[in-house]
């Protein structure tokens, strides 16, 4: 008796790797645990210093909710992408994401003009990705953010992060 080439009775599941998921802080205060007191004070008083006329919004407002899913605003407040539980429910579970790669675009020091503050921010965002996202949700992977016009620091940060043991132990 010939066996079927494909076992059509087995349950099937499409699982995939999402290479572009954007997490964001509810506010800059989410990064304070990963910054020294000196830089927390800087963040609170001096604040960001960037290369555009509007300090906290896009000068080309997007057609949909700052370019994001309008249904992704968390109930507890904050911008889309700032709530892990919502991300799990709405995206990771719903779409069957097996591995989700974080691309943390905002406040990663990439746009900050003050070189030292940019370093502090990128380092903090990298810590925050691990602690706030990857540890509680093993499906997620962090993406190292660096100030790209600061190659010396960027390379150091990349080396240090690349050597670190993944939090899941894998």
């Amino acid at each position: 008796m010939n066996a079927p080439l494909v076992d059509t009775t087995a349950s099937q599941r499409l699982a995939f790797v999402d290479c572009d998921i954007h997490p964001i802080q509810r506010s800059l205060a989410d990064l304070f645990p990963y910054m020294s007191a000196r830089w927390v004070a800087h963040a609170k008083s001096i604040g960001p210093h960037i290369r555009q006329g509007l300090s906290a919004m896009q000068a080309h407002p997007r057609m949909m909710a700052a370019g994001q899913r309008a249904d992704a605003y968390p109930e507890r407040g904050g911008p889309p992408g700032s709530d892990l539980a919502l991300m799990q429910r709405q995206h990771l579970d719903n779409a069957g994401v097996e591995i989700g790669m974080l691309v943390s675009l905002s406040k990663g020091g990439m746009e900050e003009r003050n070189t030292e503050y940019a370093r502090v921010l990128s380092h903090a965002v990298n810590d925050w990705q691990i602690e706030a996202w990857v540890r509680p949700e093993p499906r997620l992977r962090a993406g190292i953010v660096v100030p790209q016009e600061d190659p010396e620091f960027a390379a150091k940060e990349i080396r240090a992060r690349a050597r670190a043991i993944p939090p899941s132990g894998k």
């Binding site: 604040g47 919004m57 949909m64």
Partner: peptide
């Protein structure tokens, strides 16, 4: 409303709110 522009603060970089 639909573009959520109503949530934006329209602060200019030249006038950082919290600087001394």
């Amino acid at each position: 409303l639909t573009r959520r522009i109503d949530r934006m603060d329209f602060a200019l970089t030249s006038f950082p709110a919290r600087t001394p």
